[in-house]
């Protein structure tokens, strides 16, 4: 599991997190949402050991990530938004690097590449940006690490590949794994991420499961605007709104609308969700 406890982090004078506390449990695909610059990538990098945190502020599987011990690194993988391409072929990435990970399965790597229609014998430099991304996603998933951190994985993927990505990831998760996906493209990952973590300046605005969210708020479309709605957006079908779920309606969570509602009613959400302790 990942335990973040009273984490403070800054880039020179720019404070990114202040007393951030968060707990991530196995068996979940966490969606890490937030506006540009709130620290989504920084948080992932701290978890992966690429940035330094205080010894007790971030513990991953009982390790201090920044020590980058082999036992820790063997069970975690971080895929950046724009991964650098190694000089060789796609297949060589698996052969040269994958073999260091105990869970890596070369057959799975080739099978995922095939599903994404990427040829392993192709050189990275000869692939398009989207194909490179698919190759990296295939590699990341075939490592079978207990913790997988994906930064904007759906960026650069075409529409069929996004659907394929969702399908592959939903088959990937099990009770022993944690996946954290940082994204702006909430629509791409709807029905996949649960729980949702929304970061705002230096803190967590919302950390709740989809069920908890649907218990507290409902997502409805009406012909007339409702001034009591937490968030309203005019659509061709009427007004799509997020409202306090006082009537116990069971509605499908719309992540984009939720995200906007949370940003515009921070205190309301903070008050409503504080009963769910995920720290």
């Amino acid at each position: 599991m990942i335990q973040i406890n009273d984490l403070s982090f800054n880039y020179s004078r720019n404070k990114v997190f202040e007393h951030l506390t968060l707990s991530l449990e196995k068996g979940n695909v966490y969606g890490l949402l937030g506006q540009n610059g709130v620290g989504k990538t920084t948080l992932l990098k701290i978890m992966a050991g690429l940035l330094k945190s205080e010894r007790t502020a971030c513990m991953v599987n009982g390790f201090h990530p920044y020590k980058r011990q082999p036992s820790f690194l063997a069970d975690i993988y971080y895929l950046p938004e724009e991964p650098a391409c190694p000089p060789g072929t796609v297949g060589e990435l698996g052969h040269n690097y994958g073999t260091f990970y105990p869970g890596f399965k070369i057959e799975q790597f080739y099978s995922l590449l095939e599903r994404f229609e990427v040829k392993p014998e192709k050189k990275f430099k000869d692939l398009s940006a989207g194909q490179q991304k698919k190759a990296h996603i295939s590699y990341a998933l075939s490592l079978n690490t207990g913790i997988l951190l994906l930064d904007e994985p759906s960026n650069g993927l075409d529409i069929p590949s996004k659907a394929l990505f969702r399908s592959i990831v939903s088959g990937y998760i099990n009770d022993d794994r944690i996946m954290v996906i940082s994204t702006h493209q909430v629509r791409d990952l709807e029905n996949l991420i649960d729980p949702v973590i929304i970061l705002d300046n230096k803190e967590v605005l919302l950390h709740a499961t989809i069920q908890e969210i649907s218990e507290k708020v409902c997502f409805i479309t009406k012909s007339d605007n409702d001034p009591e709605a937490l968030y309203t957006k005019k659509t061709p079908l009427g007004y799509a709104m997020v409202k306090s779920n006082t009537q116990g309606l069971d509605t499908k969570v719309n992540l984009e609308a939720l995200f906007n509602a949370v940003l515009s009613h921070k205190e309301w959400f903070n008050e409503q969700f504080k009963e769910y302790d995920h720290e």
Binding site: A48, G49, L50, R68, Q69, P70, S71, L73, A74, I76, Y77, Y78, P80, E82, P83, A84, P86, Y97, F100, Y101
Partner: peptide
């Protein structure tokens, strides 16, 4: 040369091998 590159060095630094 790429070991300390913020993007290209990731595969190397994240490799489960001790320093």
């Amino acid at each position: 040369g790429t070991v300390n590159h913020y993007r290209k060095g990731l595969n190397y630094v994240l490799l489960p091998v001790s320093t």
